[in-house]
Design a protein around this nucleic acid. Structure first.
Lengths: 151, 151
DNA sequence: GGCTATGGTTGCGGCATGCAACGCACGCAG
DNA sequence: CTGCGTGCGTTGCATGCCGCAACCATAGCC
């Protein structure tokens, strides 16, 4: 299985989209993240077709974002778990939630809240500069060619 | 035009995906962000079909992520620009870049680098807690139901 | 008039998706 | 040992979206 529609572009956005660009994948990750990690549970929760769910799960396992493991020998039953690579993708989900809360939640307010372990408070994620720790938005930066740039 | 596949879910991830879940949309945003903002330029750069490009641009304009404006009267010529809503979506792209650089760049290194205006250094974006300013990862939080939760 | 540039729209064929049905391995009740 | 339920997918078919190429429309220039 492969897509390679975007995989060979010299762009980290495109290469990330190659892994989770298809719209069901982030929702599958979200569900696994919150503990919905078996095939039928995912199908019930998402309303996705079983065929596509099987394809997506196989793809995400192949990409080392999810791990398929047997949690019972007889009968053989499987569940899906996030790898480290997949956990870091969940950071991306966190930012998507921030944008969705801000621009699409309406007057009902955000559907879920997040409590930060370190401080125990309800909070959301903000982007900060890895060098100076100050806020870093897309409008605060210059884009320069890097070592892996196209020839 | 509408998708509403995800729009009515009580989930900010799904609602964000409703706007930019289709895989070309983030790449269109990226291009507009770096100054590729005319129809033919976008088509050349992305290799997308003209039909789908027209659809996506119309959708993004309708969603108030992009703005279509005439930059010449005669002949009438148009370009696309990010709205504030769209600029904030670019923060999401920044996080996608971070993940893609880390997990898909290979030994060639990242294709582009980012220089933060505030400190002038090459850096990348990290997630911090809006309350205590310390790092905030998907693994550092509890998820709680919020005011807009499903009934 | 002929040529090019910009910004799309249209028609067609094929791949992907949604939906429902089927497969199959196992455990359990009777 | 027969039948039923659960967990996990796989298969077949009809529909829809996509990529591709062609076409259209306006405007400027020679």
């Amino acid at each position: 299985m492969q897509r390679t529609q975007f995989a060979d572009m010299a762009c980290s956005i495109a290469r990330t989209l190659d892994v989770i660009g298809e719209p069901w994948s982030p929702l599958i990750l979200r569900d696994v993240y919150v503990g919905i990690n078996r095939f039928d549970q995912l199908q019930d929760d998402l309303g996705i077709s079983r065929k596509v769910l099987a394809q997506r799960l196989a793809w995400l396992v192949e990409q080392d974002v999810l791990e398929r493991r047997q949690y019972t020998d007889r009968p053989p039953r499987h569940e899906y778990a996030l790898t480290v690579k997949g956990q870091e993708l969940c950071d991306l989900l966190l930012v998507m939630v921030g944008w969705g809360d801000r621009w699409t939640a309406g007057q009902a307010g955000p559907p879920v809240l997040y409590r930060h372990h370190a401080c125990g408070e309800i909070a959301h994620a903000e982007l900060h500069c890895s060098h100076c720790d100050r806020p870093m938005r897309a409008t605060d930066i210059d884009v320069l060619p890097g070592p892996g740039a196209a020839p």
